[in-house]
Design a protein around this nucleic acid. Sequence first.
DNA 1: GCGACAG
DNA 2: ATCTTGTCGC
Length: 220
Amino acid sequence: MKAHHTRTWPNSIAEARAIQESLRGKVVARDRLGKIGTVAGIDVGFENHGTVTRAAVVVLDFPGLAPVEQAVARRATRFPYVPGYLSFREAPAVLAAMKKLRTRPDLLLCDGQGLAHPRRFGLACHLGLLLDIPSIGVAKSRLIGTHGDVPDEKGGWAALEDKGEIIGAVLRTRAGVKPVYVSTGHRISLATAIDYVLRCTTRYRLPETTRHAHRLASAV
DNA sequence: GCGACAG
DNA sequence: ATCTTGTCGC
């Protein structure tokens, strides 16, 4: 007999928190990735005043970064935006978009935090775990944690800390721009995550994966 | 009780 | 996230 996934979506913040607490222990913090031939960018946008969630996934070959496949999925929005619970709002549409993919990407770059989360289970951890694909969280702003000065040169970074623990890196992807917040999702280490984010970034602040996905999810 | 707060 | 054009700065 095949295991049946009876997955109910939380109907409250309390339920969502309980799910995060029960799943965070399953996250693999070490490098458990194979040869990376493709990387995927994931982003979400909204339509009709937020009532519809639109997720976009774009797969690029690696290290070339040329687009090879993309998918978009729309789902009724069923969870509010509450800091610390972003994955419950975005994951349903993202998982639907992933199912439309013919390619199974070797690495995921998610638009949000991974380990750099109050309960160490941000969007990147949640998606990586549910899909069982190595994942990285690349956020445009900070959720939690403190850090020192970030060298103003591409590749310069400062450790992001919380409660005496290093939860991510504040990384300068380009000189003269606001740094991005990188943290591990699933099956990857922070050092490796930083390396891949830099290798997916060319001439802009955000990785090419994120830029492509954002265009598909939000642009007309 | 007063701020902070991914997208 | 989203509503939205031009404008300041390197």
